[in-house]
Design a protein around this nucleic acid. Sequence first.
RNA 1: GCCGGUGUAGCUCAGAGGUAGAGCGAUUCCUUCGUAAGGAAUAGGCCGAGGGUUCAAAUCCCUCCACCGGCUCCA
Length: 647
Amino acid sequence: MSQSESESQITVVLPDGTELAVDADASVEDVAYEIGPGLGRDTVAGKVDGDLVAKEAPVHDGAGIEIVTDGSDEYRRVLRHSAAHVLAQAVLREYPDAKLAIGPPTEEGFYYDFDGIDIDEGDLAGIVEEMEAIVESDYEIEREVVSVAEAEERLADQPYKLELLEDLAENDETVTFYSQGEFEDLCAGPHVASTGEVEAFDLREIAAAYWRGDEENEMLTRVYGTAFEKESKLEAFLERKAEAERRDHRKIGREMNLFSIQEVTGPGLPLYHPPGKTVLRELSAFIEDLNLDAGYEYVETPHVFKTDLWKQSGHYDNYEDDMFLFHVGDDEYGLKPMNCPGHAAIFQDHSWSYRELPVRYAEDGKVYRKEQRGELSGLSRVWSFTIDDGHLFVRPDQIEQEVEQIMDAIDVVLETFELDYEVALATRPDKSMGSDEIWERAESILERVLSEHEDEYVIEEGDGAFYGPKIDFAFEDALGRKWDGPTVQLDFNMPERFDLSYVGEDNEEHRPVVIHRGIYGSYERFFMVLIEHFEGKFPFWLAPEQVRVLPISDDNLDYAYEVAEQFDEFRVEVSTRDATLERKIRQAHDDRVPYQIIVGDDEEEDGNISVRDRKERQEYDVERDAFLAHLQAENAEKRLDPDFLAD
RNA sequence: GCCGGUGUAGCUCAGAGGUAGAGCGAUUCCUUCGUAAGGAAUAGGCCGAGGGUUCAAAUCCCUCCACCGGCUCCA
């Protein structure tokens, strides 16, 4: 290689690891053309060392290059960013005084923040119309590199942009502008080639947001929208939104009389009605069985403690603003935001021998946390909730067996609900307590257990609590949404704070390690996810009403009661309403009852029943004993769907 | 907490200064029914709360309260 060649050529690395020599002043697009003319033409943008950049952006020696074409997820981001510009252009046409803030793509779409406009959702239609005109015009989107000085001139009447420019000017001498038609915007890009590509879009809502997310700053008007590369994908997205709305636990909770949150009783304080409490009791009994099998002992602690306890646990210092506090005489009390201090207080009440460990306490403990009012929402964010809490006080040499046992229980629960999940090990954060030795040991124990238990898991470096490493499960619901799930946390702090100890074999005092574990986490949150996951169609074992007996006419009422009595180990009701059979069936479906037993003269005569399930399957002339046996098995095995009847 | 939106019958919603409405549900009566809505009648309301404007307020104004959505995913 000659001297001149080596100076004018640089090497970039493609995603598959191949190296490619290109001109020193090459852009991302040039690299794409170098790979192939087809790819060059399709290039929308690129990624340099993982950062999304415009196709005109320069590459540097040794850069890792990815080409973004119109099929990729990155393309969708680029498209949405362009859609945000189309929105801004439309708003400026309709409201020339609008000041532009920022307009980035988001996970679900895009938004643009404006100041100086006063619009409500009724105005969106007009903006959409203007956007459609802009898309129709198919303006070319052009990129331009501009000096900071010139940018200042161009942005003279855009105060927010000027503020952004100030920050940029600290590092760069030039900035980029993108323009389309009469519209231009200070923007890093990248963008699609023309506004015509932004075909499948929709504006969703108007909200308010602070400039730069700071409460001290101006309140801006944010317009949310979404865009997709194809109309069909936009429709699928809107359908998924509609599906989520249909499954909203607040709506289903009302329909099924599961719970209420009322103005008189206070915000974020759910009241469970009998059907809802039935589900909760089943959920609780499930965990209780697992706990008792695993050697847990149930304890119970009050909802209120003197703040002395919270001062000892450290909650008072770190958590005071989120606690409900009040005075009784000279003493200050607080509703408990966590159950662990109470459990620690029980443990510390007397001395322990190493032979007695591990000690495993369990409690469905109600806790109270004063979340910001605006954050409260249905059962997902509340002021009072119940945790299926468990605290284990173990010797260091027992950590492994105990974590294993907890993982077994978690597996049972997740498998019962057939939930897909991901597992993460969160390791030592920068700010933490405890010796290097104990952290290393603990982390390696958790890793060993994880590798035995799980096909795969990720390590979230530095994501652990300051008091110990943890294993977090996240599961996915029927709509593909991810939720925080079971968690196992080691705690080296609490034993110190409460001066917990046991007497070892050596007759010396030793510190136990505390393990916090929750499987559902909070009943409220888990209940909410289940309601939405099942759309209220709970598995037989959880259904508030499991079987409904429908007499065809009043003449069959006595037989209906006789049948109901035979099934009374389950939650069975007889439909006594004065209605046609069709109406009773319809009602049972609306009420999401898993099984209907239909009895008329034919059934009464031969002592059998007809069975129908909520999936609209049916069978006549079923023997009562056979159905009962099936229900017993379906219930005991906690099967998800009624499966007595075949399709 | 802040911003926007919404509060009318048990539920879903209409009504936008002049006698509070519909559908579903509920109750009663008729009907006694064979696999997703039989018929009729009746009841049901401090129009979220408090204040104001007006001859007159669910409707206009102010203050609260609750709910819904949003509050960096950084040009």
